[in-house]
Computed example of a mutant assay.
Amino acid sequence: MLKKKWFIILISIFSVIALGVGVFAFTVYKSLEDTAASMHTPLDRTTSEKRPKEVDFKKKDPLSFLILGVDERPGDRGRSDSMIVLTVNPNDKSMQMVSIPRDTRTEIIGKGFDDKINHAYAFGGPEMSIATVENFLDIPIDYFVQVNMESFKDIVDAVGGVTVENNLVFSHSGFDFTKGTLDLDGEKALAYSRMRYDDPRGDFGRQQRQREIIQGVINKGASISSVTKFDDILEILGNNVKTNLTFDEMVDIQANYKDARHELQQHQISGQGQMISNGTQDIYYLIVTEEERMKLSNQLKEHLSIEGESVAKNQ
């Protein structure tokens, strides 16, 4: 009788735990769904013209993202302070990340003239940014993720901070950064990722630091410890991130592509700075050679399992 009583007590305890886990799981799922709905910003197009067929998540087709770090201002759309292309190949479990310097001179698709690539966002939002990057790299951009840069510090804090390997001693925004392993909270991470003028590599060094912070957020966001902070993370994401990903697509990507995060290769676009007159003033641009552009384009096409090499554009 005593054994039976303890057995009933144990079953009752496990039932309460199971019920609690079920309620928690439903709450998380519902919160995720609501956040995804608030972030969802559909584009006018459904698929890229450079994508011969629609991405099949179940078949684990490689896919690409354009990450836009936008410096938004009241009453002004702002410019994309950062443009990063991320390609994901779940078959070889790898990702490749390419920072596009914001001063890169290229054709702004939809405007018909050459300008700094980050101006595409000011002219036509994410649609024009995507079209311009697709034309520049000759690859499809399947999805975009737009992040308000001012909220970046909150995202870093929500995942418990990030760890980076710093190779340059510098100070910025009141913070001192030494060489070696650094644990950064949100304020420090934002300052770390924004410094440019004191870096001998200029914008290239800044882009490297931005990629490190993004990788740190991805790694921390995927950890078990971040689950307990999901309310904070979701609130920040819902208020400061826009994407054309739907909730169902997010779920499919998480299920089929998550192992790709374990290997990340980072690439830097190189070019030559040049002052070019627009008729009234000289403006600084980064000129990327056709050889450099084609080399990177073909590398990304290979990672996306897209056939055909890029060819030189008419100058």
Rank of each mutant, 00 (worst) to 15 (best):
D232M: 14
A222S: 13
S173M: 05
G271F: 05
L66V: 12
K53P: 00
F24T: 11
P74S: 06
T181F: 08
F136N: 14
E292P: 02
V156K: 00
E187A: 15
E165W: 07
M195K: 11
D142G: 03
V311E: 04
F113W: 10
M128F: 02
N135H: 13
Q299T: 13
D56L: 01
T289F: 10
R51Y: 04
N239H: 05
E291I: 10
I287T: 12
L43K: 03
Q274N: 03
E49H: 06
K3E: 13
D203T: 14
V21A: 13
V23M: 10
R211F: 06
K111C: 07
I84G: 01
E292V: 01
E33W: 09
T178A: 03
I269W: 10
F57W: 15
Q268W: 02
E302N: 08
D115H: 09
I224G: 04
N91S: 09
L63P: 09
L234N: 00
L32P: 01
I84Y: 04
I100R: 15
Q265A: 06
G273K: 13
K153C: 00
G69W: 02
R201L: 13
P62S: 03
M275Q: 11
K313M: 06
R51I: 03
E165Y: 09
K5Y: 10
E54H: 04
K116R: 14
S225N: 15
I269T: 09
A18G: 14
G238H: 03
N91P: 09
N239L: 04
F57G: 08
V21T: 03
G216A: 10
L66F: 14
P140S: 06
T35S: 15
I213P: 04
T228E: 08
V217R: 02
S270G: 13
K188Q: 14
V162W: 00
K188G: 02
F65L: 04
D203H: 15
S223F: 11
S270N: 14
N148M: 01
D44Q: 07
D232R: 15
A25H: 12
D115S: 11
T178Q: 06
